[in-house]
Design a protein around this nucleic acid. Sequence first.
DNA 1: TTCATTAGTTAGTCAAACTAATTATCTGAG
DNA 2: CTCAGATAATTAGTTTGACTAACTAATGAA
Lengths: 143, 143
Amino acid sequence: MPKSNPLEVADRLHSAAIRLLRRLRVADDETGLSAPKLSALSVLVFAGPQSLKELARAEQVTPPTMSKLVADLETEGLAIKHADHKDKRGVRIEVTAKGRALMEEGRRRRLALWRKKLARLPKADLALLDDATRLMLRIAAED
Amino acid sequence: MPKSNPLEVADRLHSAAIRLLRRLRVADDETGLSAPKLSALSVLVFAGPQSLKELARAEQVTPPTMSKLVADLETEGLAIKHADHKDKRGVRIEVTAKGRALMEEGRRRRLALWRKKLARLPKADLALLDDATRLMLRIAAED
DNA sequence: TTCATTAGTTAGTCAAACTAATTATCTGAG
DNA sequence: CTCAGATAATTAGTTTGACTAACTAATGAA
């Protein structure tokens, strides 16, 4: 049995991630949701309201980057900032009903692209990706 | 045995790719190579000289985007454009010796980040990623 | 009480993507 | 053989999303 070469695996992981994402950077015409916005909304929906710092960390961007992103979401009525009553410096960022609905629509539309590709795969390949994606998310979450 | 849910797999694949890449967008301080530049150089090294259109297609960007990227690479002495003698509209883009060396250095440094993560994994997980990344590249290459 | 730390924002910059329009060349239908 | 449409690449201009540096306001510990 051939031993996996970590360098080659790393190389392919890097290349595959780049290529798979390249076409998905642009905003979805229908919903107007870009990948970063959709991703941030998803975090707010699935992990609940949180501070800007927490959200920035979850999305692995700096606080100023997230500050701007949240400001845009707020302008579009997709999220809302409440003052944190315990710490007056802080904010609680929450998704609105509109944001939740648009997130679900955007997610559905964006994932349709992936689903179309995955639908053609044999079951074994899908199972392989199932396991691998869980692992990849674990790796991504590290430090 | 639980059946893999394509929607969930698609979702995780999307999220994982985003998160894994987010930190790698920035140029590497040592080599000055951004991910797109490194990636384009890699294509030139591994697939050989080619036209701008071909390179753009390989990298899944529009020709203007690639035109600018190649112009930058040329300014930095990493690639060179030759006129295509068969079609005077076209160019042949080639990596220089300096470009090749920097690509290898950049690749080594960039992949070190991944390798560090992968080094901690059990063999079975590495083998899983080995298979999965091959599959992902196949999927990404589809039209 | 005061001063370092922390949360968030603002200002300014940059890279990399896009579309639209332009230039130069090629090619095939009449 | 010619010229009208197609093609290769570039230029111009815009947008998005990332960053750092510097700021304000609030906190908390010595």
